[in-house]
């Protein structure tokens, strides 16, 4: 019953995309975070996807997805001259996180579209399976 495997495949994609959406949410939440007492500001995070084979005893394995890792953007944070800020350094600069809000919004739209796509795949597979169950009844 290879149709059943579609739920595994699309399910893995949906959970991967929701993890990506989670990371985007934490990046967007920290877009205006300044460096803490340790001098290190929040670094933008990004997930990496990897194909994982979902084996069937016979035939070609299906291709699911998993998040293989979360990497941090190592580029320097945004520096703003603001001597009045309590977090300013000796030269009067405040270090903000290196999150690019535009990048994150694009990432968010892409993740939600992919999420929707996979949900739609599962819905179609479900409809087809229900019709298969009624095979021979009319």
């Amino acid at each position: 019953m290879s149709m059943m495997k579609i739920f595994d495949i699309s399910g893995s994609a949906v959970s991967s995309q929701s993890q990506r959406l989670n990371v985007v949410a934490s990046n967007l939440a920290n877009v205006d975070t300044v460096a803490g007492p340790d001098g290190k500001a929040y670094k933008a995070r990004e997930v990496t996807f990897q194909t994982v084979l979902m084996g069937t005893p016979d035939g070609v394995p299906g291709a699911g997805v998993r998040v293989s890792g979360v990497s941090e953007d190592q580029s320097p944070g945004r520096k703003v001259h603001d001597p009045a800020n309590p977090s300013a350094d000796a030269d009067g600069y405040v270090t903000y996180s290196n999150v690019n809000a535009v990048d994150e919004m694009v990432n968010m739209i892409s993740a939600s579209r992919s999420y929707q796509n996979n949900i739609e795949v599962m819905n179609t597979a479900k409809t087809l399976l229900m019709k298969t169950l009624q095979m021979g009844q009319g």
Binding site: S2, I6, T51, G62, A63, G64, V65, S114, V121
Partner: peptide
């Protein structure tokens, strides 16, 4: 034919699932 259709459906679902995976080759 039905078995093969189900198989193809599964393969396309795998392609859609991997739309954002770097290096994935659609089949």
């Amino acid at each position: 034919a039905l078995t093969l259709r189900a198989e193809r459906q599964r393969i396309i679902a795998g392609n859609i699932a991997n739309a954002d995976t770097p290096g994935y080759v659609a089949r």
